[in-house]
């Protein structure tokens, strides 16, 4: 046994350069063979459609007949005719949608961050029934957005909804509120449902970050008798910030393209219309592919800009440390 193994090592040719070169060359060839199908699929499903959307934005294409279209330059974006400005950039409804989306994003992501941290800290403690609670908070996450929009739509129903019933029993309100129809309330209804739906995601990511923390700093803090609140702000928070920032950017990108929830809960109301809802309404309902594509392109640019700014600031911030 020992002989044969030593012999096999002896007879094995040394890994000289040409052989290794061949091996790594064939590996690289194999790598490209494996990557190409994925890249082709992504190009077909994402790259090319994006380019076409940008192109459509400069034409007067219509949804029923995409073949006959004409190049109209920037007219979908901005056009001056007979002393009046037309186009996306002059459309107050579009700017309303931009504002709604940003407002929705900032409020929901901040609220989810705070609530998610509270839930994560709770789950990080040791207590009876922790597993059940962790399972329970996954339920909102698992429910399809459409279903949660319908469920909350029913709970927020102006006449028979349980939320109005509860609030009236407690005495907070005298008359039922029209949550999804009242212009002053509908955005808050949307925000509330989104917070309910996506806080679990945030909580689980923060919990994962919390569980990675070294326990020795906490032992040291405990020995020194430092107040837990102070420990949280001075030790825990700085340590989990990088992981939390990743969660925040994922949630923010998701919130910026929100569609399903708003479409189902408040349909096409202008008070809650997001950029995605606006673009789809132009594209499909008004059949105006040119104009709708211009709006989609703007949405893409806004999200890309925010992402790049975030990555740039993140890198700069990390560089300072």
């Amino acid at each position: 046994m020992a002989d044969s193994s030593s012999q096999s090592i002896a007879t094995m040719p040394p890994l000289d350069e040409p052989r290794r070169g061949n091996l790594s060359k064939s590996r690289i060839r194999a790598a490209w063979t494996f990557i190409t199908p994925m890249l082709v699929l992504l190009a077909l499903v994402a790259g090319w459609p994006l380019l076409r959307t940008i192109w459509f934005g400069f034409t007067d294409a219509s949804f029923s007949d995409l073949s006959s279209m004409q190049w109209i330059g920037f007219a979908n974006y901005l056009d001056y005719e007979d002393g009046e400005w037309y186009g996306l950039l002059a459309d107050s409804q579009w700017w309303g949608a931009v504002w709604n989306t940003l407002y929705f994003t900032v409020i929901t992501v901040s609220a989810e961050l705070v609530l998610g941290t509270i839930i994560a800290l709770t789950l990080n403690a040791n207590f009876v029934g922790r597993g059940i609670v962790r399972a329970a908070i996954l339920i909102p996450w698992a429910i399809p957005t459409i279903v949660s929009a319908k469920m909350w739509g029913w709970m927020l129903h102006d006449q028979f909804g349980i939320i109005n019933h509860l609030l009236m029993t407690v005495g907070f309100i005298d008359t039922p509120l029209a949550w999804t129809a009242d212009p002053d309330l509908s955005m808050w209804a949307v925000i509330m449902v989104d917070i309910w739906k996506t806080t679990p995601f945030m909580a689980l990511l923060i919990l994962a970050a919390l569980q990675m923390l070294p326990s020795d700093c906490y032992e040291a803090a405990k020995v020194d008798g430092i107040h837990p609140v102070k420990v949280f702000f001075k030790v825990t928070l700085p340590l989990i910030t990088p992981a939390v920032m990743v969660a925040v950017i994922f949630r923010a990108l998701d919130a910026l393209r929100v569609f399903d929830l708003i479409y189902v809960l408040t349909s096409n109301s202008t008070e809650t219309m997001s950029m995605s809802v606006y673009a789809r309404q132009q594209l499909v309902e008004f059949q105006d592919v040119g104009y709708g594509s211009a709006a989609s392109t703007m949405l893409f640019l806004i999200i890309a800009l925010i992402t790049i700014a975030y990555l740039y600031l993140g890198r700069k911030h990390l560089g300072d440390d």
């Binding site: 499903v45 994006l50 959307t53 995409l66 789809r280």
Partner: peptide
């Protein structure tokens, strides 16, 4: 954002 590819993907 899904809506950014909607019209192009519809065509494909």
């Amino acid at each position: 954002p899904q809506v950014a590819v909607l019209s192009g993907l519809f065509e494909v």
